[in-house]
Simulated scan of single mutants.
Amino acid sequence: MGPVHTPPLTIAYLHPKYWPLWIGQALLWLLVQLPYGWQMRLGKALGRFSMRLQPRRVAIAQRNLQLAMPELDEPARAVLLRQNFESVGCAIFETGMAWFWSDQRMRKFMQVEGEEHLRAALAGGHGILLLSCHFLTLELNARMFGLLQAGVGVYRPNDNPVLEFAQVRGRTRSNKYLLDRRDVKGMIKALRQGEALWYAPDHDYGRHASVFVPFFAVQDSATITGTATLARVKGVRVMPCYTLRLPEHAGYRLVLEAPLANFPTGDDIADATLSNQVIERAIRQAPEQYMWLHRRFKTQPDKQSPSRY
């Protein structure tokens, strides 16, 4: 393992079996040349239509909302579910924006909150662990942060070489390189070198290196302890970082919060609980923009417990 840069484009990528992927990328490039408002309207329509095509994903998102926010009544959750799928549709266009828009156009739709926290950490020569989560705007989050300070991304490599080429090229448009999410040594090295490292510990990654702590209303959510592990690197500042889509087609707000104080504590339960609280607070600002489509609460303390899904 090690730093992942854009792989070289070879003749093998032009094999006919990859043509649909290249055509899809070309179509996405064309679509994101449209006025921004048009893209969002098309994205919402596409998201609503996708609910008919993905009943399994609809069921997962619906169940997640029931588990996470039982205080909402059924009509309120139904509205949130529809808005969430509208955001899924918008995310397709937002991926194209992140991968294909010029820096000038990106900055036009970008607002920054808390840049002073980033500048203070960089001035002190600190490595920065960007504590983030899987908002549907995550591709824009990486691109916009890179316009402030080129950083390092953590990702899951794609087995398809054309898709891998596209995502690495897109995600390094304004950042340095990517690291495989299993490359903990590479992450530690980057932080020791004073890099800003994007890290999202909010998915359910199973029992390995996880503890069971509250997340929303679920009191025993499997949560990886990697945030605290990386935060133990000397001098690292843990800085919440996320991007929210603004209403009325006003663009996006990149949020950089003050670094967490007294973190890590050395107690995995306390540290994972705090990181979940930070992430939950961010999500509650725009719950419709979060990736509720994955089975966040699938792993339970008792292996014999019936599935929540």
Rank of each mutant, 00 (worst) to 15 (best):
S87V: 01
N84C: 12
M69C: 03
F85A: 01
M40K: 14
A68E: 03
R41S: 14
F85C: 06
Q62M: 07
E71W: 09
L67E: 04
I92R: 00
R63G: 04
A45R: 15
P55L: 11
A91K: 01
R57P: 02
A45Y: 08
S87I: 01
L67H: 07
N64G: 00
A78G: 12
S50K: 00
P75M: 10
E71L: 04
A78P: 00
R48E: 12
Q62W: 06
E74C: 05
D73R: 03
E86I: 05
N64A: 01
I60T: 13
G47E: 07
A61V: 06
Q62K: 13
E71K: 02
P70I: 09
R57S: 13
L42G: 15
M69H: 03
N84P: 01
G43N: 12
M40A: 12
D73P: 02
A76F: 05
F49D: 00
R56K: 15
F93W: 10
M51L: 14
A45W: 14
G47Q: 05
S50E: 00
L65K: 01
A61F: 05
A68F: 02
E71F: 06
P55I: 10
R52T: 13
D73G: 07
L80C: 02
A91D: 00
G43K: 09
V58W: 06
L42E: 10
R57C: 07
E86H: 03
L67D: 04
E74A: 13
L72C: 04
P70K: 05
A61C: 13
A45C: 13
